[in-house]
Structures are given as C-alpha cells and as structure tokens.
C-alpha cells in the first residue's frame, strides 16, 4: 500500500472506533465522570477538607491529577480491549485481516482509538474537577506528554489483553485483578513519600506511580519520582509493548488459528 492508502486505512480504523465509542457514549464517556465526581465529593470536599495539605496543596488539588490519570488509564485500556475482543468474538476482525492494511497500521489504529477515548474522558473529568477546586498548570508540555504516553501505553496493554483473551472472562480478569489494584496503589490518593520505607520501596515497583507523578508534576510542579525516570519508564514500556503487539500480529497469535 502506498502512503496515501495507508493514511486512508488508518483514518478508517480510527473513525470506526470513534463512531463505536460515540454510539455507546453512556457506556464509554459517562461512567468515569460519575465515578470521579463521587471521588471529588467524598475524598475532595467531605474528607479532604479534614486532611492536612500535601506538599503545600489542598488534598483535592493533590488528587485531581491522579484521578484524571486514572480515568485516562482505565478508558484507554478498556476501549481497546473491548473493541478488539468484540471484533474478534464477532469475527469482524476478519474484515481487517483479509485486507492489505499493514499490521503496524492496524495496531496504530486500535491504539489511536484508545488514546482518543482516554484523552476525551480525561478532559471531561478534568473539567468536572473545576466545580470542586481551581487548578493551575505548571508545565503544559509535561502534562500533555505524560497523558498521551500513558494513554498509548495502556491502549497497547489493552490490545495485548484482547489478543490473548479467549472469552469475556479474559477481558475482565486483568482490569479487575491487576489494573485496578495497581491504579489505586499508584499514588493517586497519597504521596508515597509519606509511606513507611518498606511500602515506599514496594510502591516504586508499580509503574503507575511514575505516570501519576509525571502528570501531577505537569499541574502542581511536584513529583515523588524523578521526572526523567518517569518518562524513561513510560517510553521504554511503550516501545516494548508496541513491538510485542506487532510481533503477535505478524505471527497471527490469538487471531489466526
């Protein structure tokens, strides 16, 4: 395929995902807004007012970046895993597999769909937070690049889950038993600097810590982890997962018998 045709194929994949997510907007965009609004109310306004400032910021200001990042992570992941597995389950994926669209374009198409949903929901959750607190931006570049890279990473992780999933159980196990615990323990609600040394050390093994802190740095200018290390981990994991997804597509693992 020439570059023009590749662009059309890529646009088709992204458009299809956009149409799908907007058609079921009450399942794709709304839940995160409702959930984070509850977090803002309970942890921010009700309980948060009784908590001492963290690094000089009120508790709600401290948790907003983490909650936005949590929405970005879960939505990017679930968009790709459900979209891809749905196509596999209904055999719609064959429409793509019989076409000359190169594998790397298919991977990019699904990942872009995840990024679009992750970023849109992230923006909506961020706008909702303005009803509860005011926010300042310390570094646009850091917060945008952290959000986009995290979204790409978890879209790839969702694609990986979708490739290996053999049933609907397979697409719910990882989010429930891996993604949710890692996210909740990923420094969204607390600073790991306040943890006992052993728990701090254990927490540093959780990659989500680095993403949440990089994003928080973009807003507040504070981070529990070095920014360079956070972006290094983000970029490194993204490259590894992209290559892994591409390899699985080339071999047809989880797709071709």
């Amino acid at each position: 395929m020439n570059p023009r045709r590749i662009t059309v194929a890529y646009y088709t994949l992204v458009r299809k995902e956009w149409v799908r997510m907007t058609r079921i907007w009450s399942q794709t965009f709304l839940p995160s807004i409702v959930t984070t609004t509850l977090y803002y109310m309970i942890f921010g306004a009700f309980i948060g007012s009784q908590i001492a400032p963290i690094h000089g910021f009120s508790y709600i200001q401290f948790i907003v970046p983490g909650l936005v990042m949590m929405a970005v992570i879960t939505n990017s992941y679930s968009n790709v895993v459900s979209g891809f597995f749905g196509m596999k389950f209904q055999h719609n994926l064959e429409e793509i597999m019989v076409s000359p669209t190169p594998n790397w374009v298919v991977v990019l198409g699904f990942v872009s769909g995840g990024v679009v949903r992750g970023v849109v929901v992230g923006i909506l959750v961020l706008l909702t937070s303005l009803f509860f607190t005011h926010l300042t931006v310390y570094s646009f570049f850091v917060l945008i690049s952290a959000a986009i890279l995290t979204s790409i990473l978890f879209s790839l992780a969702g694609l990986l889950n979708g490739i290996f999933a053999k049933g609907f159980d397979g697409i719910s196990i990882v989010p429930t038993f891996v993604l949710t615990p890692l996210t909740y323990l990923g420094g969204v609600f607390y600073s790991i600097d306040r943890l006992p040394p052993i728990w701090r050390a254990i927490s540093l093994g959780n990659p989500i810590i680095y993403m949440v802190n990089a994003f928080r740095y973009g807003f507040l200018g504070i981070s529990d982890t070095p920014l360079v290390l956070s972006f290094g981990i983000l970029i490194g994991l993204t490259v590894v997962l992209f290559m892994l997804c591409l390899y699985l597509f080339q071999k047809g693992i989880g797709m071709r018998n």
Partner: peptide, 18 residues
C-alpha cells in the same frame, strides 16, 4: 457488525483497502 448501516459496512471495508 450488525449494528452498523449497510453503507458504512461497505465504505469501512473499502477504507481498509485505502
């Protein structure tokens, strides 16, 4: 995809061919 319109099924498939 049974939830898609006939014309969308056709044009989407065409899109995969560039």
């Amino acid at each position: 995809n049974i939830f898609e319109k006939v014309i969308d099924i056709i044009t989407t498939q065409a899109g995969y061919y560039g």
